[in-house]
Design a protein around this nucleic acid. Structure first.
Lengths: 193, 193
DNA sequence: CAAAGTTTGTACCGATAGGTACAAGGCAAC
DNA sequence: GTTGCCTTGTACCTATCGGTACAAACTTTG
């Protein structure tokens, strides 16, 4: 297979690209910084991503979305033990966002106008997260309207915790907030399950 | 007074500057866009803000902080009726952030490395908000540890609501989340007050 | 090894970034 | 009206932006 190498390298550059976008934002990330982050020259970068920065971000979003689909969304959508699934979600999310030290690329994109190009992907990511979590709560017999409300609150709360933890430079606050969100959900599950 | 005009114009440019920084972020806001937003030429901009973009953002932060100090922090710090103060805070915040359509400049600054220059101001803003709100809850006889937790949760929750509402393009979600946060606080006040 | 295709560094492009210099214009005080 | 200060537009600077071109180097295939 002639394109095996190419695809592999393109794929393996994504985490570094994601990290660079996380650190500097989409506008703030220059080709020079992306080149340094990945260890690839400009030539290679444009070889793998002919569409430039836009295509790189697109690929990064796809990659992130894939990770979340596997690690977060699917387990919630195909849940058998809701309480365990919720606990696992919070554990995975805390690890993924490094207790708020790591920023959510998707959330950040939505915040300024440079991300308008990716608006659909951003929206879908959050919509799917909320509906997956709401489904999980409904399986635990939480009334549908309340399930959606709680799911929305939890996803939003995680984003807020990232903002606050970054602003205060204090991941302990992230942990506290997320722990509270988790018990709110577990309480609801316990109440109806 | 010879410098009255100058100071007035500098001050009156701040809202437009803030809006431009909100829309494009700090890195994304170019001098051209700042010039267009304020209606001031480059010459005037550098006359009022010799330090360039950094000084403009500094002034914008100062301005925002002043507004919050007057409208949000002080009423919480010098509270007599905690329930009314909390309700007023949520009303003012909802109006200020236009139900999440408007982004929080301070929160955004904390998210990427371009805001490191302003880290102290960002941190102080959130720290003061949380401690003012916690104080308000303590006046309502909420136990101190719980007051801090609730305050942290509320401030963080507002930031999360902005992120989510922007991402989904749906201010109704902002309203729902903020209403929930408000009742959580009012419940606590009612329970102990 | 030779042929064919991939991957890479380097040099380069026009556009625009943030910032400076400065002369012309506007405005108050006398 | 004239003086002196403040304000402003324009022209200009260098650095860097995202992006292109392309030949050299490397792989893979036979």
């Amino acid at each position: 297979m002639s394109n095996k190498r190419a695809l592999t390298d393109r794929e393996s550059a994504l985490p570094a690209l994601a990290e660079a976008f996380r650190e500097h934002g989409f506008e703030g990330a220059t080709l020079a910084s992306l080149s340094k982050a990945t260890g690839l020259g400009k030539g290679s970068l444009y070889n793998f991503f002919p569409g430039g920065k836009d295509e790189m971000m697109e690929a990064v979003l796809e990659n992130i979305d894939g990770w979340f689909a596997d690690a977060i969304f699917s387990p919630l959508e195909n849940v058998s033990d809701p309480a365990a699934a919720v606990t696992a979600m919070f554990d995975d999310v805390t690890a993924y966002f490094r207790s708020g030290r790591r920023v959510c690329v998707v959330g950040c994109l939505g915040l300024n106008s440079s991300g308008e190009t990716f608006a659909v992907k951003v929206k879908d990511y959050f919509a799917r997260w909320i509906s997956a979590l709401a489904h999980c709560l409904e399986v635990a017999k939480v009334p549908p309207a309340m399930a959606v409300d709680l799911a929305e609150e939890a996803v939003s709360g995680i984003q807020g915790a990232i903002v606050l933890a970054r602003a205060l430079g204090d991941d302990a606050s992230f942990q506290r907030i997320v722990r509270r969100l988790q018990s709110t959900l577990l309480d609801a599950i316990g109440r109806y399950g």
